[in-house]
C-alpha cells in the first residue's frame, strides 16, 4: 500500500501532472475571483458600518460583519464548487485507486448518521450532519470505510441568538475489530491529565466513575478510557495497540477518539475535515502538498495493519 518514492514521482509526473497543470490554471482564476469577491464584500460591509455609525444599535456592526461573513462564505463555496469537483473526480480519485484499485471513492458520500451515533462518542443531540469524501474497501479480510464529517448542534446564547456549535469536524473511520467483546469501551483525548498531570487524573476519577486507568504512561498522557469493565478495556487495548494509538495521534496531529462497540471499531480524528480538499492559495503543482494527501490516505488505510486487525487468531470468525 505504501508508495516507494520513485513510484510516487513516476505516477505524479506521468499520470497526474498534465491534469494538474490544467487544474492549476483554474485554481489561479478561482483564487483571483475569491480575493476580488472578498474585497468587494468586505468593503461593502465596512461602508455600511461607517454610514450607519451613531444611528444604529451597538450590535449592528457585529450583525453586518456576520452577514458579510455568511454571504462571502456562500459565494466562495459556489465559486470553488466546480474546481473542487474536478479535483476530486479527476485527481483525487486517481490517487485513491492508484493506492488500492479495490477502493471505492464517492466524493459526495459520507458515513451514515446512524453509524456516527452508534459509536456513542459524541451523543445524539445533533442538528446538522454533513460530509464528503467517502472511501470504502477492504484491507486483507478487514472492511474499512471512512469519510469527512461536519457535525453541528444549534445553540442559543443569552441574547436569544442562534449559533452553530461544532460537535465533530474531521475524518470518521469505521472498521471491524478482530476480537470478541461484550461491552463498549470509549477512548477520548485526555485534556485534564495532559495539562494538569496527576491532579487532572485525580479530578477525572472523581468526575467519572467509569474511568479506567491504563498501564501505559504514554497512552494515559494522551487518552482517557471510559469502560464498564476494566478487564475488557485492557483486553482490547493491549500494550501494542496503545503504543500504535499514541503514534496515530502524533502522526494525525489532531485529537483522536475511539469507540469499541458491537464488534466494531470507530475512530474519529478531529482534523477539521480538510485532509482531502484542494488547495486554493497554494500551487496544486507543489509535490509536498501532493505527498501530504498520500500520507493522510496511508495513515487512514494503514490503521488496519498498524492495529493488526487482520490477525484472526481468536475464535471470532
Amino acid at each position: 500500500m505504501n508508495f516507494k518514492a520513485s513510484e510516487l514521482l513516476d505516477f505524479y509526473y506521468e499520470e497526474l501532472y498534465p491534469q494538474l497543470m490544467e487544474l492549476e490554471e483554474e485554481r489561479k482564476n478561482v483564487a483571483k475571483k475569491v480575493i476580488a469577491i472578498t474585497a468587494v464584500i468586505g468593503a461593502a460591509a465596512l461602508w455600511i458600518i461607517i454610514r450607519t455609525s451613531g444611528s444604529s444599535t451597538a450590535d449592528f456592526p457585529v450583525f453586518v460583519a456576520f452577514g458579510a461573513f455568511a454571504v462571502g462564505g456562500f459565494v466562495i463555496r459556489w465559486l470553488m464548487s466546480d474546481y473542487r469537483r474536478k479535483f476530486k473526480n479527476h485527481i483525487f480519485r486517481k490517487l485513491v485507486t492508484k493506492i488500492d484499485s479495490t477502493l471505492l471513492y464517492t466524493p459526495t458520500g459520507m458515513i451514515p448518521r446512524s453509524l456516527f451515533e452508534l459509536s456513542g462518542l459524541f451523543g445524539n443531540d445533533i442538528d446538522f450532519y454533513s460530509g464528503n469524501d467517502l472511501i470504502k474497501g477492504r484491507i486483507g479480510d478487514t472492511p474499512i470505510e471512512f469519510s469527512d464529517l461536519e457535525v453541528e448542534k444549534e445553540t442559543t446564547d443569552s441574547k436569544g441568538r442562534k449559533h452553530r456549535t461544532t460537535i465533530f469536524s474531521g475524518t470518521f473511520i469505521m472498521t471491524e475489530f478482530h476480537k470478541h467483546f461484550q461491552r463498549t469501551v470509549l477512548v477520548y483525548p485526555d485534556v485534564a491529565e495532559k495539562y494538569l498531570g496527576v491532579v487532572g487524573g485525580w479530578l477525572q476519577g472523581m468526575a467519572n466513575g467509569k474511568l479506567v486507568r491504563m498501564d501505559s504512561p504514554a497512552f494515559e498522557k494522551e487518552f482517557k478510557v471510559i469502560a464498564d469493565d476494566p478487564v475488557e478495556a485492557h483486553y482490547l487495548l493491549t500494550p501494542n495497540i496503545m503504543e500504535k494509538l499514541v503514534e496515530l495521534k502524533r502522526k494525525a496531529n489532531a485529537p483522536v477518539y475511539l469507540s469499541f462497540k458491537l464488534n466494531k471499531l470507530f475512530i474519529a480524528i478531529a482534523n477539521g475535515g480538510d485532509w482531502f480538499e484542494p488547495t486554493l492559495f497554494k500551487s496544486l503543482l507543489r509535490i509536498d502538498i501532493f505527498k501530504q494527501y498520500i500520507e493522510n490516505l496511508n495513515l487512514l488505510l494503514g490503521i488496519v495493519e498498524e492495529l493488526n486487525l487482520n490477525r484472526k487468531i481468536w475464535s471470532k470468525e
Binding site: V212, R213, M214, D215, P230, V231, E232, A233, H234, Y235, T238
Partner: peptide, 8 residues
C-alpha cells in the same frame, strides 16, 4: 489483560 487491569 485481567492481570494488567488488576495490577493497575
Amino acid at each position: 489483560a485481567a492481570r494488567r487491569a488488576y495490577n493497575q
